[in-house]
């Protein structure tokens, strides 16, 4: 176990200092109060500014606590907000891919379907917003599992191909993190497949997953891997929603 990280301790001290004072502080004042070199204080302040925890006043150049810090306790993303922000991109994904689109978010150890766009062939389909899907047997679920270690899947078998051991699920999650997408091939329903990618919010935190699903022969290549065309549509849509939600780097 490594010891405490000095720069984080210093950053915390700067935040405490800014929270205590009523007004704004200059970099010199901060460095002096905490007995830091001015360059060190400046570096930490710039980093904190980058993540939105402090803000710099444009005229005086002084620092104060940032809005992101104030919203830290209430920063979970409302699922209806997620749908509202993603709806245009999800429509575009359905219309480009020709497949049904779903957006999922974690709820009580399962995937809650937050949004569903019909496959654009005007066949009879019904909205399944509000239904719960298994985490370990769907592409949407595997994306959520891969990026949230607090989630635990109950590995019930659905088909012959369902991943039923924790080791297999862990290995699959590692692959998802490496690739940036997940695929499901007949793991929940025989003959059905799906591709999903993560939706990220502020600071890159994964808040949901977006994906397409349909018959295996349309979604996957003969070798069982995802169709490259569909995969790139899914990843483009996921990136577009993430950008809209304020995840700048993804």
């Amino acid at each position: 176990m490594p010891g405490p990280i000095q720069s984080i301790e210093r950053a915390a001290a700067i935040l405490r200092l800014l929270a205590r004072g009523s007004g704004r502080l200059g970099v010199g004042e901060i460095a002096e109060s905490l007995e830091l070199a001015k360059g060190t204080a400046h570096g930490i302040l710039r980093t904190l500014q980058g993540v939105g925890f402090v803000e710099q006043d444009r005229d005086s150049g002084k620092y104060q606590l940032g809005a992101a810090l104030l919203h830290l306790g209430t920063s979970y993303l409302d699922v209806n907000e997620l749908r509202s922000r993603a709806i245009n991109w999800a429509d575009a994904l359905a219309s480009r891919s020709g497949e049904a689109v779903r957006i999922g978010a974690p709820l009580e150890g399962r995937v809650l379907v937050v949004h569903h766009v019909f496959r654009p062939d005007d066949s009879l389909q019904s909205l399944d917003v509000g239904t719960l899907l298994p985490l370990h047997a769907t592409a949407l679920g595997k994306v959520l599992l891969a990026y949230d270690t607090t989630l635990k899947a109950a590995p019930e078998p659905y088909t012959r191909r369902t991943l039923v051991t924790q080791t297999a699920i862990k290995r699959a999650c590692a692959k998802v993190r490496e690739a940036g997408w997940a695929v499901e091939n007949g793991e929940m329903i025989s003959g059905e497949a799906g591709i999903a990618a993560p939706i990220r919010g502020h600071g890159g935190i994964v808040v949901g997953a977006i994906g397409v699903s349909g018959a295996v022969e349309r979604i996957c290549e003969p070798d069982g891997g995802p169709s490259p065309r569909l995969l790139s549509h899914v990843r483009d849509a996921a990136r577009a929603v993430s950008r809209d939600l304020g995840a700048s780097r993804w």
Binding site: D91, H116, V117, F118, P120, Q125, S126, L127
Partner: peptide
């Protein structure tokens, strides 16, 4: 024109 969603 394609249906994206329908409520019954």
């Amino acid at each position: 024109w394609h249906r994206a969603g329908q409520w019954l």
